[in-house]
């Protein structure tokens, strides 16, 4: 691996300052699972690694006035096993527990999981695509069975994170620290489509750190779950996934948030499906209609049409299961 200096800042402010220094290539690192692979593949060649693991207090789950706050460095294993997250925000515990393998979940952090780079094989193998600073997306005419059916263009990567759709479904807020201070934005505003900047997946600046994730107080009757469909039984990214959060009043769905993963360059919300479900009893018929509506507007590529019936089916089944 390329040589570099590992720096252990003591505070977020120090980390931000280190990341922004001029004349050096810097990279922020949490768990390291994705970042070290990128360095080994020479997709990035940092002079300085800014290691967040030594900043105290960034790996805690706390509660403030009903709101649950998850430090950016909290591991996926911790989140998947946390009693509060499991009981109130099941969709997030499910999603964190669905990531990779035990080893990945023990090292991987929530901030790293939502800001990991795409796993498109062209990008990871160093092709000069948009993500590697080039001006094309090789998947359009190439091997695109795992690529986007929604929101593609000019890049057709899919966002690989399991926790991202869950956080959008829960209407989480992301607290970000940068040189000018802090800002807090909605999870849905954090992820950015390729039409905005095809080289990036989110709005985090190079010298910003995702410090904390805030989950709004769980509304009464919140039922949520995450379903991940894989092309083998374990240890890979979703080919299609769905995060569902329903506010139920007895049999009736008062409000719904339904977000797909693995099908678009960002977590893909389904506002039309959400509107169909609001104020209704979720019968098998309504779930089937929602499934059918979930693929409206999809634009599959040559080799990923199989994602359409798959998306329909898992939206239908997951809604039925949550409402039951």
């Amino acid at each position: 691996m390329k040589t570099f200096t590992n720096v252990n800042p003591k505070s977020v402010q120090e980390a931000v300052k280190l990341l922004g220094q001029q004349g050096k290539t810097t990279a922020v690192v949490g768990g390291g699972s994705d970042l070290l692979g990128m360095v080994k593949e020479r997709l990035i060649q940092p002079d300085i690694l800014v290691n967040l693991k030594t900043i105290p207090g960034l790996d805690k789950i706390t509660e403030q006035g009903g709101e649950v706050r998850i430090g950016g460095l909290t591991t996926l294993a911790t989140i998947s096993q946390d009693p509060t997250i499991r009981s109130r925000y099941k969709v997030l515990a499910d999603a964190a527990g669905a990531v990779g393998t035990p080893q990945i979940r023990n090292a991987g952090t929530i901030a790293g999981n939502v800001s990991q780079r795409p796993w498109c094989w062209y990008f990871r193998n160093g092709f000069p695509c948009f993500k590697n600073g080039g001006k094309t997306c090789f998947s359009i005419a190439g091997e695109n069975e795992f690529h986007a059916i929604f929101g593609g263009g000019p890049s057709y990567i899919v966002h690989p994170s399991d926790t991202a759709p869950a956080l959008v479904a829960l209407d989480a807020k992301f607290r970000i620290a940068g040189p000018a201070g802090e800002r807090t934005i909605a999870a849905s505003e954090f992820f950015a489509p390729p039409s905005k900047d095809p080289s990036r997946e989110n709005v985090l600046a190079h010298d910003e750190v995702l410090v904390e994730i805030h989950l709004p107080a769980a509304p009464r009757g919140l039922r949520s779950t995450y379903h991940k469909e894989l092309d083998r039984e374990s240890w890979t990214h979703a080919i299609v996934s769905v995060a569902v959060a329903l506010e139920m009043d007895r049999d009736f769905c008062k409000k719904a948030r339904v977000v797909l993963g693995g099908v678009a360059p960002i977590p893909w919300r389904l506002p039309k499906v959400e509107a169909m479900l609001a104020g209704k009893r979720i019968t098998p018929e309504l779930a089937a209609q929602a499934g059918a509506a979930s693929i409206e507007g999809a634009q599959p590529l040559a080799k990923n049409k199989y994602k359409l019936p798959l998306t329909k089916a898992i939206v239908k089944r997951t809604l039925t299961a949550v409402a039951a």
Partner: peptide, 27 residues
């Protein structure tokens, strides 16, 4: 694999399994 995919390098770090190819020694 040296990329956190195969598991042959698994060790326990503070009692938890991790891929030792995906950790830095300095950490």
């Amino acid at each position: 694999c040296d990329r956190g995919e195969c598991g042959a390098c698994t060790v326990l770090l503070d009692g938890k399994s991790v891929y030792s190819c995906s950790q830095l020694g300095v950490w």
